[in-house]
């Protein structure tokens, strides 16, 4: 467990993981942006969860349902009591996203390995190309997703804005200001309008991470960024968003697990929905 953070069980160190590679009560899951990375070598025993194939509905813009999640957990050999440790590339961006989806299904017993893949590699710890051993399916119960605690939908965000609620926009300053509508070369992720949701503070997601080690910043540094600079407080209801809800799941983890905010929701519709929606309020600049 990483000390000093609000929910220390939500974050474990590479050393903690290395000491428990043979613990059958722990399931290691690698979740990456780069689809080739897991196959080039992963922590011994780690399984892969791919965000597109494993976590998303293939047709509707939504996540998998309860039956699909139970099938995924059976494939991974996880029971409701299994402690799942996520790690991955890109400063654990995708690992946080996977953890967020798992929490929607009430699997609370899951953590992030601080520093992710890059720190494990930098420390010279072992990687393997061998397939992870198959863990027998235990018949994970089908539990429907409960979006109410960790996820926000457009109408909820609109009501939140109208009530003067706090938001954090984790996109780049150029996206926040409206100067940029989408990532260059990828118009499909764009929006008809640029800017941000009124009242949002702009804190790009990667500010929470030490780029050299991939580790989350110490608690005092995170407090300075999110509470002193952005003006958020732990007791407020905060909504985080980005373009499609991936980067903001990282910030959701920082606010909730590391800083102990009591009510944080990830608006996964994010700017691709808000910036294309007729009649919703937008601020620029």
């Amino acid at each position: 467990m990483e000390q000093g953070y609000a929910r220390p069980d939500d974050l474990v160190s590479t050393e903690w993981v290395a000491e428990r590679l043979d613990d059958p009560g722990i399931l290691l899951v690698e979740s990456n942006e780069d689809p080739l990375l897991y196959a080039t070598g992963h922590i011994p025993g780690a399984h892969e969860v791919d965000w597109t194939r494993d976590l998303n509905d293939p047709v509707v813009r939504d996540y998998l349902d309860g039956a699909g999640f139970a099938r995924l957990m059976d494939r991974l050999g996880a029971s409701p009591d299994t402690r799942i440790i996520f790690y991955g590339d890109r400063n654990n961006w995708w690992a946080c996203y996977a953890l967020w989806v798992f929490r929607l299904f009430g699997h609370e017993n899951c953590s992030i390995m601080n520093g992710g893949r890059i720190k494990w590699v930098q420390e010279g710890r072992p990687l393997t190309r061998e397939s992870a051993p198959v863990r027998p399916a235990v018949g994970y119960p089908v539990r429907e997703r409960d979006d109410s605690e960790h996820r926000a939908f457009r109408q909820e965000v609109l009501a939140h804005v109208q009530a003067g609620g706090r938001l954090v926009d984790v996109r780049s300053p150029a996206e926040f200001s409206g100067e940029k509508l989408h990532m260059e070369g990828y118009p499909n992720e764009g929006a008809l309008r640029g800017g941000h949701i009124p009242g949002a503070a702009n804190v790009p997601w990667a500010r929470a991470v030490n780029p050299e080690t991939g580790e989350f910043l110490p608690p005092a540094d995170l407090e300075r960024i999110y509470m002193e600079e952005a003006g958020l407080t732990r007791e407020e209801d905060v909504v985080a968003y980005c373009r499609i809800g991936e980067r903001s799941s990282h910030t959701w983890f920082v606010l909730r697990s590391l800083l102990g905010f009591t009510r944080v929701r990830n608006y996964d519709g994010s700017w691709t929905e808000w910036g294309n929606t007729v009649g919703v309020p937008i601020e620029r600049g």
């Binding site: 942006e33 689809p35 070369g185």
Partner: peptide, 23 residues
């Protein structure tokens, strides 16, 4: 063609990864 990316990697790529490879 820019969509050579999809022919090689398939469509199961993140938005950012697609942007980078198309870039």
């Amino acid at each position: 063609p820019d969509d050579l990316v999809y022919s090689i990697f398939g469509r199961e790529l993140s938005m950012g990864k697609t942007a980078g490879l198309m870039g």
